[in-house]
Design a binder for these strands. Structure first.
Lengths: 212, 212
DNA sequence: CGGCGGATTGATAAGATTCAAATGGCGTGG
DNA sequence: CCACGCCATTTGAATCTTATCAATCCGCCG
């Protein structure tokens, strides 16, 4: 969907439905398959010991879901109604031994995920709460349908909070601030519009350099 | 060194020295090779725009250094005097097309790294500064020479701070507290000893459940 | 022996969390 | 179709952790 050639094209797979909120697999389960998101949004998360959880990533169409080749070390949930392509491990290994370029594609995909997670870590290390939300919204607005910067926010405040490493209340407050400031507008329901970040560079007036 | 069979055994490589502090490769450079640490300690980091940086990981003997298959999206530095095996990209692709199990090993290694980085993110999301240091010390004490829990701390306070996402001053304060509390002992120079975390479970006396 | 950079320590302030309460939206069932 | 109830979200106030700034100390290397 969109990509010229999808990762793992050529592998045997089975399409599966996952209604909103449903668990696709759970941390600790045997990894019997890997998945590719065909439609919708998937949330990857690690559950800590004290009920705390970290949302590692939100995945959209075309992205490969692979967190553990023997045992899943994270859980996957459908954020919206979702369709995933399930590729069993034996299909996967079969493909790899048959087609070296598939192995390469998979490595590239794994490296991309690693990079994303590392960037996520950079955000978690050093960003202020406000910068975190800005980072998230700008990332998201580049992903979805992105017609004229409008985008959907299918995930809950809690999901966002656990992704950004801040409290849900803080997320809420920052949303209000962003709207009040005019950086964010709510169009309807879950649909939002982010003020273009390529604001004219002559905007030297103090107050917000880029609202990050 | 230690592993039954090393990842990427069978690939052509060249051993290279990297004296303490030296850069092995830099973020943004073309990825001409991947590396395997043979001896010493390597630090992976991402440099942010404002001079801020995130230390993604510290790597020890046997671990594969791969952050970017076309362009390095992170930098690698020698924390101690280090020897790395340099495996050029063409050797790598050649190996993969020749030996599917090598591809599998590499995927497993990439997945392990991803898991580590995701765990790192969990720490960055939710842990208090004190829990971060505990997490770090316990991880490190399981890695190094680990004779009787004694271990080396080759990295600077600044490195640790950037790895844990806290200020160097905070790291310093927490070290003092851990030593005062008796959880950590300095043996000599960079050598430390961590109090066994398997403290008798009958230790119900309030004060420190596990000092995390 | 001197000097330089990393490490420590202290005081202060800012940011975010926490707890608690009120509000709102959404789906369900009447 | 509307009313109800539940759960997510919002809002407020107090608190606490940690960052920041600045000064000093220490260890190491030349």
């Amino acid at each position: 969907l969109g990509d010229q050639r999808r990762t793992l094209e050529g592998a045997r797979f089975r399409l599966m439905d996952a209604p909103k909120g449903e668990e696709i697999f759970h941390q600790g389960d045997d990894a019997e398959a890997i998945y590719r998101v065909e439609r919708g949004c998937v949330r990857l998360q690690i559950d800590g010991k004290d009920g705390q959880r970290e949302v590692i990533a939100f995945l959209f169409s075309g992205e490969v879901v692979c967190v553990g080749l023997e045992t899943h070390w994270a859980s996957a949930y459908a954020v919206t109604d979702t369709i995933v392509a399930r590729i069993s491990m034996c299909s996967l290994w079969e493909l790899i031994s048959r087609d070296a370029s598939a192995a390469r594609d998979l490595l590239v995909s794994a490296d991309k995920r690693l990079r994303d997670v590392a960037d996520h870590g950079l955000m978690l290390s050093r960003f202020t709460a406000r910068a975190r939300l800005a980072w998230f919204l700008q990332w998201l607005s580049g992903h979805d349908g992105h017609r004229l910067d409008a985008f959907d926010l299918p995930m809950t405040r809690r999901d966002i909070a656990d992704f950004l490493g801040i409290a849900p209340e803080t997320v809420s407050r920052l949303f209000r601030q962003a709207v009040d400031r005019g950086d964010l507008r709510r169009l309807s329901g879950k649909r939002y519009l982010l003020r273009s970040r390529e604001a004219p560079p002559e905007a030297d007036k103090p107050g917000h350099a880029c609202w990050t």
